[in-house]
Amino acid sequence: MPPTELSFDPQRIERPDRSLLWYYVLVAAATGPLFPITFLPLFFKYETLRYRFDDGGVSMSWGILFRREVYLTYRRIQDIHLTRNLLQRWMGLATVAVQTASGSATPEMSIEGVLQADALRDHLYREMRGAKGEDAETMPTPDANLPEDEALALLREIRDALNGYAAAKPAAARNSPEQ
């Protein structure tokens, strides 16, 4: 893994890469004479596209007439799809589609124009639920940690102390019950 991926910081991502615009140009060009109609929305999407990655989630906003802002938390990610078609591979782009448990089949968020898509995907994977196996870690294993069970040792200590107290002071305790 190259060092650039280790130093990958998603919080620095705010705008899609410039090559996304060229990708949109080519996608729109593929429609032939419809180029102006298809390119205009894509152009404005590129121009207004903003990402914000924070500790808990990611938000993505775009649109010039009709604005949209999608926010989702990492922990609610259900599955991550990294898709690259031939054109995207040639241009070093990818689509990272993120799905939550909502009912729609279309991805809740399609992150486009990030050059380090693999690193981004792995970042999302690290933050999504179940990737770290934290449940397995906190699961108590009763028999394994019994010998050095601190709670049991403490309880025994309390018992011994109480027993000692009860053995030493029964007479005194009975002689002055009014206290």
Binding site: D79, H81, T83, N85, L86, Y125, M128, G130
Partner: peptide, 13 residues
């Protein structure tokens, strides 16, 4: 091949 799709799912989900 032409469109390469990679899906990641954790078992927790």
């Amino acid at each position: 091949i032409w469109i390469i799709r990679e899906t990641t799912i954790t078992f927790e989900n």
